[in-house]
Simulated assay, not measured.
Amino acid sequence: ETTRELLTQRAVQDDHEDPRRAAIKALAEKWPDETTRELLKQRAVQDDHEYPRCFAIKALAEKWPDETTRELLTQRAVQDDHEDPRRAAIEALAEKWPDETTCELLTQRAVDSSLTDEQRHEHSAALGRLRSDFDRIVLT
Rank of each mutant, 00 (worst) to 15 (best):
D117S: 12
G128M: 01
A59L: 09
H121C: 00
L93A: 04
A56S: 14
T69G: 08
L72Q: 05
A94N: 05
L7N: 03
K41E: 15
L93H: 04
D66P: 08
Q119T: 13
P32N: 05
P19W: 08
R43V: 10
E67F: 01
D18N: 11
L130N: 02
D112E: 15
D33A: 05
W31H: 14
C103N: 07
C103W: 00
A61V: 11
E38Y: 10
T74W: 07
T116Y: 02
G128K: 00
I24M: 10
Q46W: 10
D15H: 10
R21K: 14
H121N: 06
E62P: 06
A11C: 12
K41S: 05
L93R: 01
L40Q: 06
D14P: 04
H82A: 12
R10I: 15
I137L: 12
L130C: 08
F55Q: 14
D80T: 09
R87V: 02
E50I: 00
E118L: 13
R109F: 00
Q79A: 13
L6D: 14
I57T: 13
F55D: 05
T68N: 12
R4S: 07
D81H: 12
L105G: 01
A92P: 07
P32I: 03
R129E: 11
I137N: 08
T3P: 04
H123E: 00
L72E: 05
E122V: 00
P19T: 03
A61D: 06
L72P: 06
A22E: 15
V111K: 02
E91K: 15
A126T: 02
R136C: 06
F55K: 14
T101F: 00
A28F: 06
L73Y: 02
P98I: 11
I137C: 06
E38K: 14
D14T: 03
L7T: 01
T101P: 04
W97C: 08
Q46K: 15
A28W: 03
L72V: 11
H82T: 08
I137G: 05
K96R: 13
